[in-house]
Design a protein around this nucleic acid. Structure first.
Lengths: 342, 342
DNA sequence: TTATTATGTTGTATTGATTTAATATATATC
DNA sequence: GATATATATTAAATCAATACAACATAATAA
């Protein structure tokens, strides 16, 4: 089946290809009403669908957006095994589709460049998740297209960012435990890297302890990776080695699930013996038993907002609306935290 | 920053653009060793990256694969909220990346066509999830590119398929309950549509009941959608209206989670009072409490296999290896099913 | 009526890479 | 040394669309 090109349409409608192009690209003013209608009719009858390759070759726009998920430790080349990212991508996709952009989804082998994809495909823009100071940093600057960073604290006006106030979130979670009478509070988290979200949440945790006059004990920090398995280990550890700990703040819900399992495995009950608070409020958190008390961020909205922001930037209607770029957080009280009597 | 084109490289290396093209596309035999080396050197020094739009314009290959997730009932335009799909996409992505294909991920508004995307982007192939007999059927045939269907029973040699033996899986699950002494077994499931996977699982359930001489009771079928919420409702229903039911087969793990919550809400314990078996073995199933007994399919492998099969088809090395296209199932015994005494 | 402006319309160059056919050069055969 | 063969190399056509500049026609102004 041969492809129907703009020439075929032109011939059938008895006009030039230029007329077709004008008629189809919002330049109806350059075409009379009669020809416009005739063109539209023939386009429909021939079922003509323009070729994006040819189009993007001339006007350097591809209507393609790259969505890049760097490999997280522990999630080996399985970029969507982390449900948090799935929800974000889901939001991005729905928003992009609404605006007639297509989405190229890709993981990123460490070492390999971002710019390859971008240049090869003439991407109109890129959304990158959870990147912290890194070698990629400089490379990103070279590729001169709009870039939105989700959950990044890279401090450069060149990059637009969508995120949350992670430090505040860390404070909220910690304070919630403190307010419920907990005095020995552990933190279970992924690697604390400079300018990563996890560092900020940790900072919130620490400052809130100080504010409450509680002792910050480095032995209460279980730092490894943002994975279920790490949570399990930490849970067992807490149960066996630290009976004084009654509250645990996990910097991700996934980790909180692991902690709860680990605790139960070591015969501690949640929340009767130990309270656990998570972070993110992924979908599973309300389905888990016990239902997880956590700091909610609207994950899907994050994706949607990132897509909107990117599209605005591409189309030049840049609204540098910082308030809308730091999304709200909310404490969701469910079943995994209880009050202890002092 | 101006783009570096093949012409720039040609000029810098003192050869024609044709030579560059040969050197870069595995046609080294048409180029002498010296020029090849010179070209490679200049390509590296100029950091030349070819433009896929131009390339795909001439050879009608885009190195792009479309991954299409039709909107599931209940998952309104949030294509990845279903963790099952996320895992598949994850598998597809890793495999495609390995072979230098890029992936366009998109949901599909009901009504809108598949062929638009395909033709616009000159896709080399398409992977479509969970499509059953439908109006889209005919449209798919018109677009003459390789298509892999995941979890579909559309019977047409034009479409290649990757799936599992859903009926057998349904049997396995049901038999497991029967073997554990259960005689009143409910089925909680999404809409049973002709040629959908759910229908097959239902058929397996039914036939296994008959085989065991048990009564098939339509009142035990809770048919609505493959969603957590439906599971909750069904769980409550069973607890309140059907105390005789001791075993429940959910045609998806997500639904099983809901059932367990619903049962607990209505003061039934799992597995002490009621046993629940799921289907899929998504990641959460081993993390859930109680850990879910389920029929495992290797979800990520499904994605990988689909990608492999598609790439083979595109490249002409078609291995119509049916055995490898029906992936194995395995009963995973965990904590949500227990033996009842008769 | 002629000059001027506005409105449609089209021919053609352009985009970046591939590929065919033609050409130039080197090597082997007799 | 002349002819045939193999090997490098390149000029130019091609892919499908866009957009500039040129031109024709109609509408308006003088």
């Amino acid at each position: 089946m041969k492809r129907i090109t703009i020439k075929d349409v032109a011939k059938a409608a008895g006009v030039s290809t230029a007329a077709i192009s004008y008629a189809l690209n919002g330049k109806e003013s350059k075409v009379s009403v009669e020809t416009l209608e005739r063109i539209q009719a023939t386009v429909a009858s021939l079922n003509y669908i323009p070729d994006f390759s040819a189009r993007s070759l001339v006007n350097k726009k591809s209507n393609l957006i790259g969505v890049i998920i760097p490999e997280t430790e522990g999630y080996n080349s399985a970029i969507l095994e982390n449900p948090f990212y799935s929800e974000i991508v889901s939001g991005i996709e729905s928003e992009l589709r609404k605006h007639n952009y297509h989405l190229i989804l890709t993981g990123m082998d460490r070492g390999k460049g971002y710019s390859d994809l971008t240049l090869q495909r003439n991407l109109d823009g890129v959304i990158i998740m959870g990147i912290y100071n890194d070698s990629l940093y400089e490379e990103l600057k070279k590729v001169n297209i709009p870039i939105i960073l989700i959950d990044s604290y890279i401090d450069d006006t060149l990059f637009k960012k969508i995120g949350i106030d992670d430090e505040f979130g860390g404070s909220m979670a910690t304070r919630h435990l403190i307010d419920h009478g907990h005095t020995h509070i552990a933190l279970v988290t992924g690697k604390i890297k400079k300018d990563g979200v996890v560092e900020k949440r940790f900072l919130g945790y620490k400052s809130e302890l100080e504010k409450a006059g509680l002792l910050y004990n480095p032995a209460y920090i279980f730092e490894d990776s943002i994975r279920y398995e790490h949570g399990v280990q930490a849970g067992i550890m807490v149960a066996q080695k630290h009976p004084e700990i009654t509250g645990i703040f996990a910097t991700a819900d996934m980790v909180a699930f692991g902690i709860i399992s680990g605790l139960q495995e070591a015969d501690k009950r949640v929340p009767e013996d130990v309270s656990v608070i998570g972070f993110d409020d992924i979908m599973m958190s309300s389905m888990f038993i016990p239902q997880l008390t956590t700091i909610r961020q609207d994950i899907k909205a994050k994706g949607i907002r990132a897509a909107q922001y990117l599209i605005q930037t591409i189309q030049g209607s840049i609204s540098n609306d910082l308030e809308k770029n730091t999304l709200p957080l909310k404490l969701i009280e469910r079943q995994s935290v209880r009050r202890v009597l002092s």
